[in-house]
């Protein structure tokens, strides 16, 4: 009797009634939220992957801006570009308001600054370095009470990890740490247009909770930007391809028409 009582007590918070939905992180990109039936399941780590110029940075920034407007603390960790330059990209957004940055709702940090602070100066990180880095990111997220995080790009971090083992360790630990903090994360991943997988090392895609593939599609000589949710743990979603446009109102999405003869291009 007593054992059963203890067991129910332990299992209670974990058990979800059938059909009960996980709490959603509404991305604010209307088309994407529709595809995902309401948003990214909270705490998920999602890979936004695609070849260059497909809109990965733009959609990630928009995700953060909408979060900040809704009152969530949002963090952008920039690995490749100086964050000052990134700001130029969001200013054209009609819904952007620079008080979000002044109020600290939207925070930009350059990854090289974190590396320096941690003394991570070697070209190739060790397993301990990986641990240090994950802990550092975790403590920033905890301290600032960050609910939405973007790392752009994870591929650049992986260059310093080199081996599959370390990449696996990094993404698993990071995902677990952030999920426990209730932070919903986008990891931007860069692939070549002809790549046959969703991430450079193939490890990232297997571990991530979700994959959103962004690419270009050539049809009868026209080039279209596309977006497709390949997987997303914790929700049903459309797996169809959508056509994307980057506008001052943000990312717009419409279904890709199938009627014509479609030959798939790269990415």
């Amino acid at each position: 009797m007593r054992i059963i009582a203890v067991l129910t007590m332990v299992t209670k918070p974990i058990v979800r009634r059938a059909g009960e939905e996980r709490n959603r992180c509404v991305t604010g990109v209307e088309g994407l939220d529709n595809i995902l039936n309401g948003g990214i399941p909270r705490g998920n780590t999602v890979l936004f992957t695609g070849s260059c110029g497909t809109g990965k940075t733009s959609i990630s920034l928009e995700y953060l801006v909408h979060g900040a407007i809704d009152g969530e603390n949002c963090l952008f960790i920039s690995v490749t570009e100086a964050s000052v330059k990134l700001l130029e990209n969001i200013i054209p957004y009609e819904f952007f308001d620079d008080s979000l940055i002044k109020k600290g709702k939207l925070v930009f940090v350059d990854m090289p600054v974190i590396y320096n602070k941690l003394g991570l100066v070697t070209v190739e990180f060790t397993l301990e370095d990986v641990d240090t880095l994950v802990k550092a990111i975790g403590s920033i997220v905890k301290e600032l009470d960050i609910k939405r995080l973007v790392i752009d790009s994870i591929t650049s971090v992986c260059y310093r990890l080199k081996t599959e083992e370390k990449i696996r360790e990094f993404i698993l630990k990071l995902g677990k740490t952030l999920s426990e903090l209730g932070c919903t994360t986008i990891l931007v991943s860069e692939i070549s247009p002809t790549a046959e997988r969703y991430s450079l090392y193939g490890v990232e895609e297997a571990i991530a909770d979700g994959i959103v593939l962004m690419g270009n599609l050539e049809r009868r000589g026209d080039l279209l930007r596309t977006l497709q949710v390949v997987k997303m743990r914790g929700t049903q979603h459309s797996r169809a391809k959508y056509v994307l446009d980057l506008t001052p109102c943000g990312v717009l999405l419409v279904p890709l028409l199938k009627g014509g003869s479609v030959s798939s291009g790269g990415g």
Binding site: R219, R220, D222, L224, V243, D245, T247, C249, L252, V254, P255, L256, L257
Partner: peptide, 20 residues
């Protein structure tokens, strides 16, 4: 819109203007 074959882009522009 680049060409009348880019029907999706017509939809996207309509969507954009409807938002505006």
């Amino acid at each position: 819109v680049e060409s009348p074959t880019m029907l999706e882009n017509i939809m996207l522009k309509v969507e954009y203007l409807m938002r505006k």
